[in-house]
């Protein structure tokens, strides 16, 4: 029986085959999955902000840098082998635009950049990503196949 493990905002979870990981309604946040296909384990994080260095207080799972570090730690505890790890991500949209005003912070774009950079630093390959746009995403990760399913309301569905 496969369970669906739901990852909330500013949270991460790890799971084993045959479970699936899911996070609902990513706007400017990023959903990032790191997985070991041979061991059939994976982690999914719902990251809200680029860096814990600009803001010192708060739950470390909401920042790209600290969250990825914690999630990797949990994956290693379960026996993940670094050389086998792969990553995929989705999210980082710009949901609202105000007439005549450029979005000054572009938080979605910055989040995608930061998660990409953090993954790069770890040396884990980012196999696929689907980021940007102006629409929300709900994502499911199949730990068995390594497929990341991305569903939107008005922009179709895809698997990366």
């Amino acid at each position: 029986m496969s369970n669906i493990i739901i990852v909330g905002m500013a949270d991460y979870k790890v799971g084993k085959m045959p479970d699936k990981l899911m996070t609902v309604g990513l706007g400017s946040c990023i959903g990032v999955c790191i997985y070991d296909l041979q061991l059939q384990i994976a982690g999914m994080a719902h990251i809200m902000l680029p860096s814990s260095k600009e803001i010192t207080k708060g739950n470390p799972a909401k920042f790209a840098d600290t969250c990825i570090e914690m999630m990797l730690g949990d994956l290693y505890k379960l026996g993940a082998v670094k050389a086998r790890l792969k990553a995929k991500m989705a999210g980082g949209a710009q949901m609202f635009s105000f007439a005549g005003k450029a979005p000054f912070l572009k938080i979605g774009e910055r989040n995608a950049q930061a998660v990409g950079d953090e993954i790069k630093k770890t040396g884990i390959p980012m196999l696929a990503f689907d980021v940007g746009g102006t629409f929300g995403r709900t994502i499911h990760f199949d730990i068995k196949s390594g497929d990341l399913n991305i569903r939107t309301i008005n922009h179709g569905e895809k698997v990366i």
Binding site: M9, G25, L26, G27, A93, M95, G136
Partner: peptide, 9 residues
């Protein structure tokens, strides 16, 4: 859009 996505933005 999805309420979650709107709210996080």
């Amino acid at each position: 859009d999805m309420i979650g996505a709107l709210l996080d933005a």
